[in-house]
Nucleic acid binder design. Structure first.
Length: 544
RNA sequence: UGGGCUAUAGCCAAGCGGUUAAGGCAUCGGACUUUGACUCCGAGAUCGGUAGUUCGAAUCUACCUAGCCCAGCCA
């Protein structure tokens, strides 16, 4: 699938056609202070796909201008995620690589009389800024001379002042209706060790100042960001203009992506992990890239989903069914179809006299023969799904087993239920069935139509297995309610069952379709001999 | 009268003055089926509202309404 038409694509094509840019250069600029989630995947995919489409390039740039919040551990995690998604940055850079250049441009601003050192405290700056409806007031330090500002800024850099004692501010317009233009702080003092530059610096540039310059240094042509930066665009352009960068990048904003019943906020994700509601950032119920990966999602499915939801200047909330649809579409032809019984009901085939099992040759995926074949056991003692049997046919749509009815065990034989053995409490203990040797799959038998097709597992060759069954972590999408009230208590259910022999040694990450149940991925905590499968997504079902 | 952004079907989203207003998801019919899966057929909107401009408007203009964002030395 290719990216469909959207406003940014249109802008790029026009820029190229009219010669405003020679090539498309984009960047993905995460702050290394959190794990990436599917919302970030949209930014990654959008930036990389757009550049690729026009033969351009995309940089990965860690936006690390705030040492108190950032950490190297996230740098590696983010690199891994991007690689997993299948993208290769043209360059991997850090905002901190440009600290010296940014500093020099701040000096240029001071020399042009467009920046000044301010002694106001954070609280005072806030008061002087005014409100949404009232203009702000000029700082008393706004009129310092260029010489004085240069001297003070140099001393800020050399560490002469304490945190918060002074800031460097752009001199723009304290009465601007756009609050971002009311003399924004562009450098603050932070005596903190930076993960990349160590103790070399004690002043750090603010995002609004650093980001446009970084874009300019890298030759970024289209700097994409989310809608909340719309109001910052004039500031972005102001810095580019007044710092006189050689290259002139432009900022374009698009809406954020939300998914129903899904937590995307950094804060809530952290809250869930810290409170132990989930097991960690790679919990399979989380929309983090590591979580989705563990759950069994594929990069192809995520890419397809992002591309199919499009891009616009609206913050959208897409139905999670759309994501699941992309997932199934990708997995369906790609993984083998195996048998697993989650809630086993013993079945004895009374007319199968041998104690030996027979091994049937079956195609792993009838729609994709390149996935090969395997052996599937059939014998006297089997398990079927408890929910696939009812004493009496409950309705005319029932396509499973009942007393006296005949069904096909897929890949094997027709069986007919002759007798039900019950426990003293009335629950069903075992089914006694007969099979018809003439109905073997592949034999060409067309004499009768079975009442349905069931999966099964042969008992003596089965492996025990754990199935992790998931439901959405949240019960609703009403973000106004407190998070604690929205947690779904049944979001992770553990089910012990059986699986066919071929699954006994599934390796972590291996993906399967369990016929009639859904797609599953072997968990990283899976044990040899007792595999553990994460439910990736259910099959779509329509019971009429 | 702070400023900015947005408004096309239940959810996304094409459309850029002349089209029966793409497509996907979801939903509902039906066919097919050794997965109640897949696949295949069929079904839905006059474009937030009003008034204009025009031979012609979802596309242009004005006004209105609704929603979202902005007062970090966060990004």
């Amino acid at each position: 699938m290719e990216m469909e038409s959207n406003f940014i694509k249109t802008i790029m094509e026009e820029d190229l056609a009219e010669g405003r840019v020679k090539e498309i250069v984009t960047r993905f600029p995460p702050e290394p202070n959190a794990y990436l989630h599917i919302g970030h995947a949209r930014a990654i995919i959008t930036n990389f796909e757009l550049a690729r489409m026009y033969g351009g390039r995309t940089n990965l740039r860690f936006d690390d201008t705030n040492p108190v919040k950032e950490d190297v551990s996230f740098v590696n995690a983010i690199k891994d995620d991007i690689q997993w998604l299948g993208y290769q940055p043209a360059q991997v850079v850090f905002g901190s690589d440009y600290f010296e250049e940014s500093y020099q441009l701040a000096v240029r601003l001071i020399k042009k009389g467009l920046a000044y050192v301010c002694d106001l405290s954070a609280e005072e700056i806030s008061h002087f800024r005014g409100t949404l409806t009232e203009a702000g007031k000029d700082s008393p330090y706004r009129t310092r001379t260029v010489e004085e500002n240069l001297d003070l800024f140099t001393r800020m850099r050399s560490g002469e002042f304490k945190d918060g004692e002074k800031t460097l501010r752009a001199k723009i317009d304290m009465a601007s209706p756009n609050i971002n233009m009311r003399d924004p702080v562009i450098y603050r003092i932070l005596h903190t060790t930076h993960h990349n530059t160590g103790d070399e610096w004690c002043i750090y540039p603010m995002y609004d100042f650093a980001h446009p310059l970084q874009d300019a240094f890298e030759g970024v042509t289209h700097s994409l960001c989310s809608l909340e930066y719309v109001d910052h665009r004039v500031l972005y352009d102001w810095f580019i203009t007044h710092c006189e960068t050689k290259h002139v990048p432009h900022q374009y904003e698009f809406g954020r992506l939300n998914i129903t019943n899904t937590i995307m906020s950094k804060r809530y994700l952290k809250q869930l992990v810290d409170s132990g509601v989930v097991t960690g950032y790679d919990d399979p119920r989380l929309p983090t890239l590591v979580g989705l990966r563990r759950r069994g999602y594929t990069p192809e499915a995520i890419r397809d989903f992002i591309l199919s939801t499009g891009l616009s200047r609206i913050n959208s909330t897409v139905s999670s069914e759309m994501l699941e649809n992309s997932l199934r579409n990708d997995l369906i032809g790609k993984v083998g179809r195996y048998f697993a019984v989650m809630d086993p009901l013993p079945v004895t085939i009374t007319n199968y006299l041998s104690d030996e099992v027979e091994w049937l040759d079956v195609l792993n995926n009838a729609d994709n023969e390149s996935l090969g074949m395997r052996k599937l056991a059939f014998g006297r003692h089997l398990f079927i799904e408890r929910s696939d049997f009812a004493m009496e046919k409950p309705n005319k749509h029932w396509k499973r087993l009942s007393m006296g009815l005949e069904v096909r065990l897929i890949h094997a034989y027709f069986i007919k239920c002759e007798e039900v053995v019950t426990n003293p409490d009335g629950s069903i203990k075992e089914l006694r069935c007969t099979y018809d040797p003439n109905t073997r799959s592949g034999s060409g038998f067309t004499g009768r139509k079975p009442n349905g097709n069931l999966h099964y597992v042969e008992a003596s060759t089965a492996t025990k297995a754990q199935f992790n069954l998931f439901e959405p972590l949240l019960v609703d999408s009403d973000s106004d309610r407190p998070l604690e009230e929205r947690i779904n208590p049944d979001s992770w259910k553990i089910q012990m069952g059986v699986a066919e022999a071929a699954l006994a040694h599934a390796k972590p990450g291996d993906k399967f379709q369990f016929v009639r149940q859904g797609f599953f991925a072997t968990d990283r905590l899976s044990l040899p001999g007792v595999p553990c499968f994460n439910q990736t997504v259910e099959l779509k079902s329509r019971v009429k």
